[in-house]
């Protein structure tokens, strides 16, 4: 019995030391990771709609969009948001910028781990650039009769990106319409 207790204590000591080291490393790296993420989000928004202030609007627990107003003229420049949907093997996160008429200004794939060589090509400029100027109705892949040319061998990935954007744009639109109606009613 005493022998087992001794073994347990030794194992425990090792675990405690390991946990201590990890806690220390985590305290150093965590803030760094956080700022990196925040910086990246700000940078991506700035790239999509430059020179604007962004105001966050929370729509659902897991989704919020940003209203972009010009830093100087305070004029409405558009909206940005990050949609997510399951693609082929991973959840794809796409950030998009919209103009005030809800046409896509540009999109950027933020996070994906789709199949290298197939779905992973969705980050390429040749794929993302075709989204520019599309209305939400046009966000349909060619396999479903729309104008978005899907990636070869990765229809599921392409469809996931297009439909996730479409759904969220419609959600934002509905939210804004509702707010406007409320304002009119008041």
């Amino acid at each position: 019995m005493k022998y087992y207790l001794q073994l347990g204590v030794i194992l425990m000591v090792f675990c405690v030391i390991a946990t201590g080291i990890l806690a220390y490393v985590n305290s150093v790296t965590e803030p760094k990771i956080e700022t990196l993420k925040a910086e990246e989000a700000v940078k991506s928004r700035e790239e999509l709609i430059p020179g604007c202030d962004f105001e966050e609007v929370k729509l659902r627990d897991d989704f919020s969009y940003f209203i972009a107003t010009d830093r100087e003229t305070k004029e409405l420049k558009g909206y940005t948001f990050t949609s997510q949907k399951k693609g082929y093997g991973s959840t794809i996160k796409t950030m998009a910028g919209l103009d005030p008429e809800f046409r896509v200004i540009g999109i950027k794939i933020i996070d994906q781990s789709e199949t290298p060589g197939l779905g992973a090509n969705c980050t390429k400029e040749s794929f993302t650039s075709q989204f520019a100027g599309k209305t939400p109705e046009q966000l349909v892949v060619d396999k479903d009769g729309g104008p978005i040319k899907s990636l070869s061998g990765a229809t599921i990935t392409s469809r996931a990106i297009a439909s996730s954007l479409k759904e969220e744009i419609e959600a934002i639109k509905a939210d804004l319409d509702k707010k406007q109606e409320q304002e009119v009613a008041e």
Binding site: C15, A18, T19, L22, A23, V25, N26, E30
Partner: peptide
Amino acid sequence: AYPYLQTIAFIL
């Protein structure tokens, strides 16, 4: 609260 302990906790 301690996601960084995931690997070590899971393998144990």
